[in-house]
Design a protein around this nucleic acid. Structure first.
Lengths: 139, 139
DNA sequence: CGATTTTATGCAAAGTTTCTGCATAATCAA
DNA sequence: TTGATTATGCAGAAACTTTGCATAAAATCG
């Protein structure tokens, strides 16, 4: 399955260059060895949450209120882990909030000083959890 | 897909009656409208974590002394992680005990307030470690 | 121990789900 | 409005999951 590698490449491409059309992106991917049409690029962008800002594709800004609560980013590490970066010293506080959400897909969380590890059962759960956390912190 | 409904039914059946053979379970499922062979029942029981206790299938009991030591549950998250839930504040203490067991399949542990992450090399090691931990705490 | 019963598993087929391209509809920009 | 760009219904392809069969492995009984 090359969807994941392709989407990773898309993320790199849009941060490296200003890309204004999906067709353009599709061509760049072809050059990198991916065989893909505009249709799929459209769906990829949707799944990655990439939107057009000022005529170019980019990752949406971080919800500012999340930052207010100390949460800076959510990244995946493999299929079973989500790593949350927080402002220094606030990881525990953020983790408490996350635990309080009582998300059933979360197997467990551990907080350090500025990092939280969130264990999940698999790929799908990972997606769901990230979505739920952002939703809650984005208020 | 009727796997999920079937497994739910299995859970109900084994708590309602004493069932000693997989073939027996398969027949009961047939009566309830599921078409299933012993092979699948075997796999279901494995997935549900059901084991034979005193000649009958049952969900494994939580060793009562484990609770006394603060350990509440062990769950997996993927093949490389075991998540231990503990009573609030006791995770470090439980982790120390686990580390002291010197289980060679454990790559590393990290403890938060009420959660421990235990890293293992793979599926088999995961099974072994869970078994060893329960055994030790069940004394 | 050896025989018999019970359980686990490699493999291939069937069943499901996910991914993709095509054609085209919907949206956007000028 | 018109042309350019993006989104989407649908059908086929590809990937993954579930299952039964046959049989290997393990447990039980005498």
């Amino acid at each position: 399955m090359q969807k994941n590698r392709r989407q990773t490449t898309i993320l790199k491409l849009i941060t490296a260059k200003n890309i204004g059309r999906q067709e353009e992106l599709a061509e760049m991917l072809e050059n990198k060895g991916f065989s893909v049409t505009q249709s799929s690029v459209s769906r990829d962008l949707d799944e990655l949450g990439i939107i057009k800002i000022g005529g170019f594709y980019a990752l949406p800004q971080k919800p500012r209120n999340a930052v207010a609560f100390g949460l800076l980013s959510l990244q995946t590490a493999g299929e079973n882990l989500i790593v949350a970066k927080c402002e220094s010293g606030l990881a525990s506080a953020v983790a408490v909030r996350i635990d309080a959400m009582d998300i059933k897909e979360i197997v467990g969380t551990i907080a350090g000083d500025d990092t939280i590890f969130i264990a999940v059962g698999g790929k799908d759960e990972q997606k769901t959890v990230i979505k739920k956390i952002w939703e809650t912190f984005d208020k």
